[in-house]
């Protein structure tokens, strides 16, 4: 029982913290499998978070906020698509520019519109995505272990969390088992072959960038209106890059990416839990070490010291049709 008491809150926090990571990692995955590198996940999540919080604050409802977040992220996605598909520009530079634009734009608009030092007003419960109470929670409440696991781990998450986890099998199926998915992957591996087969590389890559933008918008909304209760300056704070790391650790595949996101969520939850805890011999627990672990792991894995991950072959390479 005591183990359960200690573990359940950490595991529930893991799922909560993994949600935006998972959405963003899937976004990066879809985009890169189509051949478009996306280091702008962070920026798209940030505008998503801001738009979601701003509209939720004005309308007092969460769903219009979510839609606004998706819309805002898609606008930035269109910029990325225009730069990297229509103009064959550098995808990495475009992504970095989007991150910096998002940081400046959201802080500017937040200050001009809400005049609260760069935040949106705190959201009332009605304007947020709250934890869902699953049917049957009461009936199971009496059952020893299962009752509590059902109430706080399986249940008790927000609608966006369930959506995020449901998207793992969906994306695995769409990418791996449908014609659209096959074509999308072809554009990321060998665009010239896809082109020869009559597939419009530009259109498919554009579709992938927009799907990624929708996912980033949802991820941003989940940070500002599900985990948090309003927008704060630069509140995504590097999660876009952790998501990128999770995608790489997951080898650009949905299920392993889910595992990586859960692992990073657990690290984050543990870091929060261990803040200020004294460790015999070391003194205060070095929380920074836990926070740095995802980045370090990514470097080690990419360098092929442990295992090997292979990115989509044509990712990051603009496709110029032969004339």
């Amino acid at each position: 029982m005591e183990v359960l008491d200690a573990a359940l809150p950490v595991l529930a926090a893991t799922l909560r913290l993994a949600t935006p990571l998972l959405l963003a990692a899937l976004a990066g995955l879809v985009s890169e499998r189509a051949g478009i590198v996306d280091v702008g996940l962070e920026g798209k999540m940030l505008v998503g978070a801001f738009a979601a919080a701003a509209v939720a604050a004005v309308t007092g409802q969460a769903v219009p906020g979510l839609l606004a977040g998706i819309g805002a992220a898609c606008l930035l996605g269109l910029v990325h698509a225009y730069a990297s598909i229509a103009l064959n520009g550098s995808q990495v530079v475009s992504g970095m520019a989007i991150n910096i634009i998002a940081s400046g734009l959201t802080a500017t608009l937040a200050l001009i519109w809400f005049r609260q030092g760069g935040q949106t007003p705190p959201l009332p419960p009605g304007a947020r995505f709250l934890s869902v109470v699953l049917p049957g929670t009461e009936a199971l409440a009496g059952v020893p272990v299962l009752g509590r696991v059902y109430a706080t781990l399986l249940g008790g998450q927000t609608a966006l969390a369930y959506l995020a986890f449901a998207l793992v099998p969906v994306s695995a199926y769409v990418l791996g088992r449908t014609r659209f998915g096959l074509r999308l992957r072809a554009c990321g591996e060998h665009p010239a072959a896809a082109d020869t087969a009559g597939v419009s590389v530009a259109r498919l890559r554009c579709a992938a960038v927009l799907i990624a933008s929708v996912l980033c918008g949802i991820a941003g909304a989940s940070i500002a209106t599900a985990q948090g209760a309003g927008f704060q300056r630069d509140m995504v704070s590097g999660r876009g890059f952790i998501a990128l790391a999770a995608m790489i650790l997951g080898g650009w595949r949905p299920w392993p990416t889910l595992l990586a996101c859960l692992g990073f969520g657990l690290l984050d939850a543990a870091a929060i839990r261990l803040q200020g805890v004294a460790v015999p011999g070391i003194g205060q627990f070095p929380v920074q070490a836990l926070q740095a672990l995802p980045y370090g792991l990514t470097v080690v894995l990419l360098a092929g010291f442990v295992g090997r991950t292979v990115p989509p072959r044509a990712s990051g390479v603009p496709y110029v049709k032969e004339r």
Partner: peptide, 16 residues
């Protein structure tokens, strides 16, 4: 910050 980001976008990614 916004101006900086726009300059990166325009000179770097939208160079063409």
């Amino acid at each position: 910050v916004l101006i900086q980001g726009l300059v990166i976008l325009l000179t770097g990614a939208l160079g063409n």
